[in-house]
Design a protein around this nucleic acid. Sequence first.
DNA 1: AGGTATAGGTAAACGCTGTTGACCTGTCAA
DNA 2: TTGACAGGTCAACAGCGTTTACCTATACCT
Lengths: 204, 204
Amino acid sequence: MERPDATGSGATVPTRRREVTRERILTSAKELFAQEGFGSVSSRMIASHAGVNVALINRYFGSKAGLLTEILREDGVFPRLITDGPVEELPRRLAEHAVGRLHGEGSTLQRALDHSAGDPDLQAVYQGRLKSAFIEPLVEYLGRENAEVHASLLAAVWLGLGRVRRIEGGEALRGHDRTRLTARIQAMLELCLEDLGTPDPDDP
Amino acid sequence: MERPDATGSGATVPTRRREVTRERILTSAKELFAQEGFGSVSSRMIASHAGVNVALINRYFGSKAGLLTEILREDGVFPRLITDGPVEELPRRLAEHAVGRLHGEGSTLQRALDHSAGDPDLQAVYQGRLKSAFIEPLVEYLGRENAEVHASLLAAVWLGLGRVRRIEGGEALRGHDRTRLTARIQAMLELCLEDLGTPDPDDP
DNA sequence: AGGTATAGGTAAACGCTGTTGACCTGTCAA
DNA sequence: TTGACAGGTCAACAGCGTTTACCTATACCT
């Protein structure tokens, strides 16, 4: 079966096209995840919203988690944020972005995925992503001794702020003076990156 | 039906006793959660391990999440940690505890629940718990201006460290000199508690 | 002691989930 | 026109948390 194409030329356009279907699923998934969060959206909901059969999700993305992995891979806000300027300004960039999120800035999708970042299926996805899109770029970007430790501490503050915002609503933080709060978070992030000395486990 | 009691007195002990059954479920749940994590343990697994009917979990705890809420309520490591000494030593206490966890210290149950702290059902449970067992006691304990902001920042670092440990294994942090790492985390927590000035949104 | 209300326990189903394998069918090249 | 095959469908699977209707051991009251 074919359908008339939009050009009015009389030619027909195939209804079965891999890329088109794949994109429909991706678009619907993003939209629904953004509205409801990952855990609350079922495969069948995505499929019916995309006007597509359920089985195709697993055909094209392996699993529901695979679908999310693909969405996150396309998104990639972390690496951009990290390499968006000189190292010495990284704490300021991250602090401003974090505080911005408290005030509802950032894409709907980002916010929704944060909101449901706990799902057990997501755990594995986020684990891979923390390394590939946060720790590793950061380590490479810092490019110095103990970079992994600095990166881990930075990631901890970053993720922790996200978590508090997510499960507490961030009301307490949002209520405070924005400039002062940003400065404080920036200071905390700078402390994460400050020199730690040589890591010698034998030395007390 | 009754069974002989352990005293050998010849008396019998009832087989149907609310508290006994409740406790059997709690014990089994703790054990299984500790081994496998929350998400991987089904209601039916808990029930069969406890030698009890599945429906009793919902009868006694409302839901599987309710069961976990009860377990966490009984546990309560947060409030103890917070009020375990003077305020000025709180950052040191928390830092030491956090680093201790990196090195596998803490109860099996704690570690396992941390490990599966992302489940969507747990999200609500943890949300209530973050407020009642962390923020609120901390706010009351600090008892000063902007206590909520300080508590939120502290909670962010604390939860963030937990999250990094959980999804990254904390290898990078564990590999570093323990004393120096503890000192750094302590400094970060102290920064969370440092005076912020008056929260005036109109003041740039 | 006997009768009986009820708390405690059970079995079977409900509707839902993600996933899979067997089966159609549109599309395109020979 | 015919065949091969990528693309799409359908129905079923096993599992989940939860609920409903039902049974029965227990304990109180006469």
